[in-house]
Design a protein around this nucleic acid. Sequence first.
DNA 1: GGGTTTTTCCGCCACC
DNA 2: CTGGTGGCGGAAAAAC
Length: 341
Amino acid sequence: MLASVLNDTGRYNPAMALVSAPQQTHRVAVLVVDTVPSFEVGVAAEVFALARPELDVPWWYGFALCAEHPGPMPAVGGYTVAVPHGLDAVRDAGTVILPGCDVHGTPSEAVVSALRDAHGRGARLVSICSGAFVLAATGLLDGRRVATHWRYAELLQARHPALHVDASVLYVDDGSLLTSAGTAAGIDLCLHLVRRDHGADIANRVARRMVIAPARNGGQAQFIETPVPARVAEATTASVMDWAAGQLDKPLSVVDMARQAHLSVRQFTRRFRAATGSSPARWLLEQRVAASLPLLERSDNPVEQIAAAVGFPTAASFRRHFRDAVGVAPSAYRRSFLGGP
DNA sequence: GGGTTTTTCCGCCACC
DNA sequence: CTGGTGGCGGAAAAAC
């Protein structure tokens, strides 16, 4: 195990970064404008720069860390990063990531025009946290829904009144312009890009290797996908998921969901997997367990009653699946809340 | 726990 | 030929 972990740490070679992905759309440039935000740059490097020989994909990303003036730059944490690339990397990239920066800074004209040019060429512009301030300076976000860190939402809105700043979502996918909330939401957004490029299955495997949840708890409500022409599989699946999530108290089966989608069970299962990377029954089970958590925490209804309320056929099967998913029995879980510190 | 029945999943193939 | 679709059957999982 240890050996495989060590082998997996993939060396980053700046000289190779821009040639390892043959096509422009596969190149990711991370553009820093002042102090290097260690965590966010690290997230992008982890998702896009790490070698992933275990995945059976036709291509993976090229990666370039860049700044207007390449060379040593201070990083959060008190060390120095030798930024290897200049704005050329932005011109060559299909995806440009703007990690957090000083919200009181003003991006230079060179940076702004490099970003506008990249977007004009069809590149995706992606911000994490306060990176939205740099993106907003280009004017490209005007009239659009935008995510940023909740601490900066008001400031961003005040400075760019034409934006619709939404502080309640993890990220917003507006096709070629994507914005995300505070630091860790950058992980969600980077995985979302992988999902768009390679499908849910590959994205889930990347998430698993990063040892994080493939999609954050709470389902659709926490992120918004605007106009992007949603793929058929995602549209049908999403509406059935909404429908099913609204009546978890009933013992719905995969057959019921397929009927709701007006598809054969076979075809529905196929689309569901294409859209989510999981199977309908597994997803239903996860939803039921997730729905039981607040009931256990906030009510003292008997476990049997909660089992029925979230659609388990019997309390025995609820206990079994709860233990599988959470690690402890429902009663023990509740006790840990009542006892509380 | 252990055995039986039912449900789910997925490769495969035939059909537009 | 390509690509979406539906059904079959057996393995695996869940329910009982």
